[in-house]
Every structure is written in C-alpha cells, then in structure tokens.
C-alpha cells in the first residue's frame, strides 16, 4: 500500500528567491525504511518538514504540487490533524522539550493531552513508548536532567506515544556523541521492526546503508536518485552531489570489487567482507 505520495512538490520559503524543493516526486510503501541524503541545504530538512505539514503551514511561502500522507493531502489539513499520522523528530534534543513538564513521564504525555486521549489509554501508550525507547528508568527525572542521547530518545518516545504510522527523523543524531547516536540508531531500528514507516535524514552513510530499504538522494532541491542503497552508493557522480559513499563502498570501489553478478559495489561491512574475502588479504 502506498503510504506517502509526493507529486511534483515545489516549495519556496518566504523571503527567498530560490526553490528549496523543485519538482520532487516519489512514493513510499507502508513499513519501508527510507534514508534521505544530500549535502547541506540540499532540501533534506525542508522535505522532512513537508511530510508533517510544517511546510507550508508553519512557514507559509509558495507551495506547489501535492503531498498525500495515507490519503490526506497535507495542504488541506492542519498540523494537529497530520500529527496523528506522521511524527517528526528534530536535530536538537533541547528545543524539543516543551519546558512545561516536570518529569519525563509527564513530558511524553504532553502531545496526548493536547489530542484529548483518555487517561487510561495515555498511561498505556506512555509505558509502551518508555519501554520501546528504553528510558523507563528515568521516567521520574526532570526532562532537562538527561544526557543528549536520553533526551533525544525521550523526544522520539513523545512522538511514538502519539501512535503515528510514519515517523520522520531529521538528523536526529547530529548533535549527539557516538554513544548517544548509537542508542538513537538502535531505537530507530526497533521502531522500524514495529512496522512503522521510517524516513531518516542523516549524514552517517554506513548506518544509512545498513538500515535503509531505499535511499533518496537530493541535491539542490531535486531528486537525483531514489533506489536501493547499493545502486545509489555505486553511482560515479556521488561526489558531485556532495555525498560520500560508505567507507566499505569506497574501499571496494578503489579495488574495483563489485558484488558477484551485479554492477554494484558492497555498501555494508558484511558485504565488503564477502567480496574481499576471496582476495587472500
């Protein structure tokens, strides 16, 4: 089933001359794990925000084309309506804390209170989210007294508690230390296993190659490629689009070792080992 349909999406921020998104079209199936890559300012964040209606409802600006999420056309619904279908997690864990709640537990309840969920259901959902993100031990702490990784997992839990069918993560680990990023990546993988459709914008290509079903490569607001990681990372023009392939792919490219029977280079450690294993290294 098509979960997300984007058709000829064009968008220009107010006060800007340039299109941030230029004729973007793609379709995403239910339960897919999609990676969005591209250099800075290529339109990744704008695209992520277009999925939840922040573009155009929050920023205004010029908007053309269609984004249809699970049958709802984003342009015609409010952000609060769309938030029942799609959740988004941002880069900075600090600014996602509401600042009006005293404990992690209450913080996660914030969205549910706004949506008018009953108390019994709320408690169920919060416990589910706390356990899924493995932050139950901190539930009585102040939201500001967590480490970056814990805070970001709390932000994800706050969104997950709202039971969206799709979750969009806009560089969720870019401000975290390696340990914090690892925690968050593990959590995202768990979400994907739950059947949630995941859209992840990231710069850590090794992780993207490992997790994603398909990769959307953006440059200058346009879709350059949308395909499985092997195809996208085997492109010769990656450098021109400001993206580095995973280190395994770069090594195999340098050695000109393709995956057996295909025209693609390996993108994960395992594949690289399989391809290079026979070299007697």
């Amino acid at each position: 089933m098509k979960k997300i349909i984007v058709e000829n999406l064009k968008y220009k921020y107010p006060l800007s001359e340039k299109l941030a998104l230029n004729n973007v079209s793609f379709e995403i199936e239910q339960g897919e794990f999609i990676g969005v890559i591209g250099r800075n300012l290529s339109g990744k964040s704008t695209l992520c925000q277009a999925m939840v209606g922040l573009v155009p409802h929050f920023y205004k600006g010029a908007y053309g084309g269609k984004v249809i999420i699970d049958g709802l056309e984003v342009r015609n619904y409010s952000i609060a309506d769309i938030s029942l279908k799609v959740g988004i997690v941002f880069q900075n864990p600090f600014t996602q804390i509401t600042g009006s709640k005293m404990t992690v537990y209450e913080e996660i309840a914030f969205g549910l209170e706004n949506l008018g969920i009953s108390r019994a259901e709320m408690i169920n959902r919060i416990d589910f989210a706390l356990n899924l993100l493995k932050i139950a031990p901190f539930k009585e702490r102040s939201p500001f007294d967590l480490s970056g990784g814990q805070m970001q997992r709390m932000a994800i839990a706050s969104i997950i508690a709202m039971k969206p069918e799709i979750i969009v993560l806009d560089e969720p680990t870019s401000q975290l230390d390696p340990e914090g990023s690892e925690e968050v990546f593990r959590a995202i993988q768990d979400l994907s296993k739950q059947g949630i459709t995941v859209i992840l914008a990231e710069h850590k290509m090794e992780k993207m190659a490992e997790f994603c079903n398909r990769i959307l490569l953006l440059d200058d607001g346009k879709v350059v490629d949308f395909d499985v990681p092997e195809k996208v990372f085997s492109r010769d023009d990656l450098g021109e689009h400001g993206v580095n392939a995973p280190v395994y792919t770069r090594v195999c490219k340098a050695l000109n070792k393709k995956k057996a029977g295909t025209n693609d280079y390996p993108v994960t450690l395992e594949e690289a080992v399989r391809v290079l294993g026979g070299m007697g290294l």
């Binding site: 922040l54 929050f58 952000i79 600014t95 996602q96 949506l115 709202m162």
Partner: peptide, 13 residues
Amino acid sequence: ERAMALEVRGFNS
C-alpha cells in the same frame, strides 16, 4: 524550533 516541536505535538489541536 520549540514552536515547531510544539506544533507537531498537537499544541494547536
């Protein structure tokens, strides 16, 4: 950023 984070959590519901 906080305003956006509030929006997507149904603040204007």
